[in-house]
Design a protein around this nucleic acid. Sequence first.
DNA 1: GCCAACGTTGGC
DNA 2: GCCAACGTTGGC
Length: 140
Amino acid sequence: MRYWLFKSEPSTWSWDDQQAKGEAGEEWDGVRNYQARNFMRDMKIGDRGFFYHSQKEKSVVGIVEVCAEAHPDSTSEDDRWECVDIKAVRSFVTPVSLDQIKADPQLEEMVLVRNSRLSVQPVSELEWTAICALGQTDPG
DNA sequence: GCCAACGTTGGC
DNA sequence: GCCAACGTTGGC
């Protein structure tokens, strides 16, 4: 199982919106970046991901699970663009802010820190565990 | 609201 | 195939 991070502007698609979809989950659509798409093509059902709010909040707020592997993005006519479906698993007990992540030496190599513009990115197991610990949240 | 970083596009 | 111009993202 691999770990990922999905970034969203809460004004466009928030953690509340994601949770409201429940077990059915929802397409992670609208990605128009090859790197991000390629990461989604690598995802398998059951992979876990962080749900990150960009802009004002800048915090990891939830854990999601991949519930459908890459398929054409229904919001695009262009068949180059694909997406996975994800469903909410649990909320962070304490959201973990970008400041906290930057302050932790274990996390300085995170893509979130290194390439802040990439909207879908891989997370290492160590990073996963460390961020869940910071958020007092069950990593499983 | 600004700007740096990055990705994409199109002319040559 | 290079690179300038432009658009977008996201932190500050």
